[in-house]
Amino acid sequence: MKKVYFILISLILMLIGCSTNISTDPIIEEKQSDDFKLVINTDKGVYKTGETIEIESYLEYLGEEEIQLNQEPIITIIIRNKENGSIIKQVDFDNVKTTMEKGEKFSQNLVDFNLEKGEYELFVQMSPTTVGRTTYSLNTIPRILKVK
């Protein structure tokens, strides 16, 4: 009987320990279409309340030759409350132009901000833009960012 109690208590303690762990696994999400790659990432997927959050995002051109975009794309980082869908933070890239060379990136970083306890969807989206006759519109899949 003592063994049963010992095993039961051990299991409960393991479950409590697992549920309070803060994950150090980063969030990395990318979407590639032809010569473009859109990326968003954080250094981890779970933060403690009050902990500083940093997010990096970029659009990279992978093609060989310089290209001319018909218009500057609007590229936006979005943080949305998972529970009710409200947008918590929305930031447009501020270094976008109409030409890109091989390996060039348009990027935006969000640094030194905090979120309240909860679950959030993190993603980046790009408005449609045209190169020659081809139109590109990229969006990453929303990833869950947790604050405990």
Rank of each mutant, 00 (worst) to 15 (best):
Y47S: 03
K48H: 01
Q71F: 15
L38I: 01
N41G: 05
N81P: 09
D43I: 08
S57V: 13
K37E: 11
G63C: 09
E64V: 04
I88S: 03
N70P: 04
K44P: 06
K89R: 02
Y47K: 03
E60R: 06
L69F: 14
G85E: 09
L69T: 08
L38W: 00
V39N: 07
I74R: 15
T76H: 06
I87Q: 08
V46G: 00
F36C: 00
G45H: 06
K82I: 04
F36N: 02
L69N: 12
I78G: 01
Y58E: 02
Q71P: 01
I78E: 06
E66H: 07
G50E: 14
N81E: 07
I53M: 05
I79N: 09
E64I: 12
V46Y: 08
I40E: 05
I53R: 01
I67Y: 12
K48P: 01
G50H: 10
K48G: 09
L59F: 12
I67R: 13
L59C: 08
E66I: 15
L38E: 01
E56H: 15
K89A: 11
G50F: 10
I88Y: 09
K82A: 14
I79T: 04
I78H: 08
I40P: 03
N81Y: 08
I87D: 07
D35S: 02
E72F: 10
E72V: 14
I55E: 04
I79D: 14
I75N: 07
N84W: 05
T42R: 07
N41E: 13
I77P: 12
Y61W: 13
D35W: 00
V39H: 04
E83I: 04
V91Q: 10
E60I: 12
Q90E: 09
E65M: 07
E54W: 11
R80Y: 07
T42Q: 02
I74M: 12
K44L: 10
E51A: 14
I40D: 06
G63S: 08
K89S: 13
N70Y: 08
P73L: 05
T76Y: 08
Y61D: 12
S86M: 14
L69M: 15
D43F: 11
K37Y: 00
E56F: 12
P73V: 02
T49C: 02
K82D: 08
T49L: 13
Y61R: 01
T49H: 09
I55V: 14
I75H: 06
E60T: 07
Q90V: 05
P73I: 05
Y61T: 03
I67T: 10
T76W: 03
I55P: 02
Q71S: 14
V91G: 07
T52W: 15
V46C: 02
F36L: 06
E83W: 06
L69Q: 07
E64M: 09
I74T: 05
I77T: 15
D92I: 06
E72T: 15
L59H: 01
E51L: 10
P73F: 01
G50I: 07
D35L: 00
N81A: 14
E51Y: 15
Y58P: 02
K89E: 02
